[in-house]
Each structure stands twice: as structure tokens, then as C-alpha cells.
Design a protein around this nucleic acid. Structure first.
Length: 315
DNA sequence: AGAATTTGACCCAT
DNA sequence: ATGGGTCAAATTCT
């Protein structure tokens, strides 16, 4: 473990994260002890929110470390050919600036009764600007950029990719830091955003879903989360979809997911669109909240204290 | 009408 | 030539 040297900033961040995680753990304990009892829903929600806040803040700090580059994309250069980094003499402003953008990945595991959109939500609002079928990947990759890119010049973007082997898992690659006004809010207030009930022509698909459910097409048995992590009741907008019936599912006791936005293309067909699109699907944007599991992949070790935190209120 | 999404085309790096 | 990422016109939603 090598920590990048320097500064007190680094130590400070470390401490900050440690404090946040500790705080989150304490809240988790409290919540756990309340589970057995008949505590009020409100109380539990409050605790859950606190836990999420702690995690979110921690993650945010980590994410800000920038230059993390643990991106492990199973699809891209799997051969491991390290692209030339420093030999970029191309004055392509676009590219170079992009390269210098911090990048990190996060894995989100959706859980059965939860709306995918919610699960994937990170509290920021994103606008989808593209989707692509990736070679070797079963599911298409969705490309999103901050909704406020135009109005506030926020350069943050993210890519959402559903894992081949485990359709319940999504790998999200974030790039750039939010410089928009959202950053402050998200950083401090986690998201329990309101989901937007966006319903459209999809109730048609809903019917399809029902049908499939009836016919027993769905073959998922979601059980427990595959990865232990924390629940993230935020909202976001991923795309999910699948080309197969396998995504269906989620029938759960609280079929809440039906109330969320639609994830169409990434492979999750949870909502309404499954089975709908051509080969991949489409996704939509988001804002909802639901629990899902988030696996962060940003190693602390790569933390770069030199990165300026901008846009995150509260730290 | 304005905002967001879809999707084929285009651009650029390999 | 190929594939990933982005653009932008068309379309769909709100």
C-alpha cells in the first residue's frame, strides 16, 4: 500500500473516510438492533438514510481522488495491452482533457424487490446520449452525461454496463467530477429522491411482463445479494435490458419496481421495456430510489490527495 | 413547447 | 478494418 505521499490532505481524507465509515457502521448496528424490534418505520428509514449518507460521503471522497484507474472492464482490452499513455502528442484538446479526468468504477448489484433504476441511481441526474453494443458483451453499454452539462458546464459522465455473467450486477464507470450545483446536494443529502413515475407507452410492455410472469418465463430467483455491500436507495437511471427473458423478473413482494423509470436497454428489463427493443434496448434517465447493492471499486491506495474537490458540498 | 431518449452515422484510436 | 465513444436528427415524453 503506497499512499501517495504527501500531505496532510491525504491524512485528512483518510481520517474523514474512517470517521464516516465508523459512523455508518454504528448506524448499521443500530438499524440491525431495530430490525428485530418493532421500531417505527420512520426510525429505520432514518437510520438507513444515515448509513447511506456515510457511505455516500465516503465514496464521494474516494471517487474524488481522481486518477483512479482501476477500471476493470471485462470487455475492453482484455489482452492487457497498456495503451501508450504518455506518448500522446496529439493536441486533441478533447481527448487529452478527457484523459486527465478522474475515472473510477462502481459495481451495483440490484436486489430482487428493488427497482433497477433506483438501484442504479447515484443521486445525480444524467442524460443518456448514446448506447452501444459492445463486442463480447451480452448487454449494451449506456452512455450518460450530466444533465447540467450544457447549462453549467458539468463534464461528468458515466457508462453503465450490465455484467454478462451476472445480470444482477452492473458496472458503472464514472468519469469526471461534477461541477454542477447537484454535486453539493448529492454529496450531502443522499438521495432519496423522488422517483418519477414515468409511464408511457410501456404499459403495453407491462402486459407483456405480466404474461411472461404468468407463463413462468422468468427464470430468476433472486435471492440474496451476491455481494455484500450496502444498499443504496438512491435513484438513477441506468439502462438495462436483456435480450432474453432472463431479466424479467423481479417479481417481488413489493413490486415496487414497476413504479420506477424504465430501464430499457441495458439489459434489465425490469420495468416495462423488456423484450421491447431491437437488440439492445434503451435506457432512460432517472431518478428514483431503491435499494441496491453498491460495490465500490476505488481502492484507497490510489487516492490522490492532490485532487481538488470541487463541487461536493459538505466536505 | 421543451426536455429527454433513441439510434444510426460519424470520429478517432487501435 | 474494427470497435468504442459521441453526435445529432428524429422521435417520444412531459
Amino acid at each position: 500500500m503506497e499512499q501517495k505521499s504527501s500531505s496532510g490532505d491525504w491524512e485528512k481524507m483518510k481520517k474523514e473516510i474512517n470517521d464516516l465509515m465508523t459512523e455508518g457502521r454504528d448506524y448499521a448496528h443500530q438499524l440491525k438492533s431495530q430490525l428485530g424490534s418493532s421500531s417505527s418505520q420512520e426510525s429505520r428509514e432514518h437510520l438507513a438514510k444515515k448509513i447511506l449518507e456515510s457511505y455516500h460521503k465516503s465514496l464521494t471522497i474516494m471517487n474524488y481522488s481522481g486518477e483512479l484507474d482501476p477500471v476493470l472492464s471485462p470487455y475492453t482490452n482484455s489482452g492487457g495491452s497498456p495503451k501508450s499513455d504518455d506518448s500522446d502528442q496529439e493536441p486533441r484538446i478533447l481527448k487529452s482533457s478527457k484523459k486527465s479526468m478522474p475515472r473510477w468504477t462502481q459495481k451495483v448489484s440490484i436486489t430482487p424487490g428493488v427497482g433497477i433504476d433506483r438501484a442504479l441511481d447515484d443521486g445525480f441526474s444524467w442524460r443518456k446520449y448514446g448506447q452501444k453494443d459492445i463486442l463480447g458483451a451480452k448487454f449494451p453499454r449506456g452512455y450518460y452525461r450530466c444533465t447540467y452539462r450544457k447549462s453549467q458546464g458539468c463534464e461528468a459522465t458515466k457508462q453503465v454496463q450490465r455484467c454478462d455473467e451476472n445480470p444482477m450486477l452492473f458496472e458503472i464507470i464514472y468519469r469526471g467530477i461534477h461541477s454542477c450545483s447537484q454535486a453539493a446536494n448529492v454529496g450531502s443529502t443522499i438521495p432519496v429522491q423522488i422517483l418519477e413515475p414515468r409511464q408511457t407507452q410501456e404499459h403495453e410492455n407491462l402486459e407483456i411482463v405480466k404474461e411472461s410472469l404468468d407463463t413462468g418465463h422468468h427464470s430468476y430467483n433472486h435471492q440474496a445479494p451476491l455481494h455484500q455491500t450496502l444498499h443504496y436507495p438512491l435513484s438513477s437511471s441506468p439502462n438495462v435490458e436483456s435480450n432474453n427473458a432472463y431479466m424479467l423478473p423481479l417479481v417481488d413482494h413489493n413490486n415496487e419496481f414497476f413504479g420506477s423509470t424504465s430501464y430499457s436497454d441495458l439489459g434489465v428489463n425490469v420495468n416495462y421495456d423488456f423484450l421491447a427493443s431491437r437488440d439492445a434496448g434503451s435506457a432512460s434517465h432517472s431518478t428514483s430510489n431503491s435499494p441496491s447493492t453498491v460495490l465500490l471499486e476505488s481502492p484507497f491506495k490510489n487516492f490522490d490527495p492532490n485532487h481538488p474537490f470541487r463541487g461536493f458540498g459538505e466536505f
